[in-house]
Amino acid sequence: MALLAVENLRVTYGAVEAVRNVSFHLDRGQILGIVGESGSGKSTLGYAIAKLLRPPGQIVGGHVWFDGVDLVPLSELELKPIRWRELAVVMQSGMNALNPVAPIRRQFEDAILTHRPMGAKAMRERVREMLALVNIEERYADHYPHELSGGMKQRVAIALALVLEPKLIIFDEPTTALDVVVQRYIVQNLKALRERYHFSALFISHDLGTVLEIADRVAVMYAGRLVEVQDARSLLQHPQHPYTQALLSCFPDPRADHIEVMGIPGSPPDLADVRPGCPFAPRCAQIIDRCWRETPAYLASPDGNGVACHMVKEREGSAYV
C-alpha cells in the first residue's frame, strides 16, 4: 500500500478552483517532487494534504489517504496525533516559520513536549543529535533565530521536522530564497538524511533542476492540474507533455558549450477565468484543434506515470488507459 494516495482532490479559494481533480500516490521511502510555476496550485496542494489550508481555502472534494486513513474528514483533534509525529511540514523559507523570540532549543522542546514527551536529559541529547545531522554546532541551540544565517535557519527547520521521525515530510519550496551554494548544501544534506531515516517526502518547488536532482518521481502541475508524472530519470530523458519539455529547456546544463534558453512565450492562465480546452494551449507549440475544445484528461498508466495531453495520446495511444 502506498504511504500517501491523493484521489481526485479539489481545493477552492471562493470561486477560484486552485487544485483541480489531482490524483497521485507516493510509495514508502520515496521522494515525489511537485513542480510548477507561480499560480500552478503546487503549494495549495501541499497545504491541503497537510490539512493546513486557511479560509477561504477549502477542500471541496476528494481524499487524502495517509497510511490508510483519509485525512480529509478528520477534525483538528483527530489530526493532532498525526501531526509532526507522522506527517511534518517544512515551510517555504523555514526561517520565517521559526519563533523569533524563542531560542532554537526551545523550538525543539516545544515540538517534542506537545507531540511525544520525553525527559529533559533525553531531550537535550535529541536536540544535539538533530543539529549535528544538519551540521550545526550545538552551541547554536541556545541562540535565537535572528543570530543564524538564512541557510542555517532552513537547516534548523529541516531538523525540526525530523525530530520525531515522521513517515512523511512535506517540503514547500525549501531552497527558494537561499543562495545557490546553500541550496546545493541543503539538497546534499537532505539526500544523506533520507539514507538514514528513510522518510518519504513531497518536495514542492518551482525549480525543476533541483527537483530532478532530489526526487525519485516528479509530478508537474499547470493551472491547478497534474499534467505529467514520471520517474525523475525518465522525465529528464523523455519528457512527454509539451509544458514539461518547455520547462525543462529553461534549465540548461551549466557545463554545456552552448546555452540558449527560449523560455515559454505568454503567461499562465488566470484561474478565475475558466475556458474550455487545454489550459496550456495558448502557450503550446504543438497544438491541434482538439486542444482548444476539450480539456485533456489526466491519464495514468498502471505504474503510476501519467500525462494530460491530446498529442501524447494520439502519438502513444495504448500506453495510457
Binding site: 545557490v180 551554494v181 541550496q183 546545493r184 539538497v187 525549480d207 533542476g209 533541483t210 530532478l212 536532482e213 525523475a232 529528464l236 534549465f251 546544463d253 551549466p254 557545463r255
Partner: peptide
C-alpha cells in the same frame, strides 16, 4: 563552487 552548486540533474552526483 558557484558553478558546482547550480542544480544540474545531468551531472553525476
Amino acid at each position: 563552487l558557484l558553478l558546482r552548486s547550480i542544480p544540474n540533474p545531468w551531472a553525476p552526483p
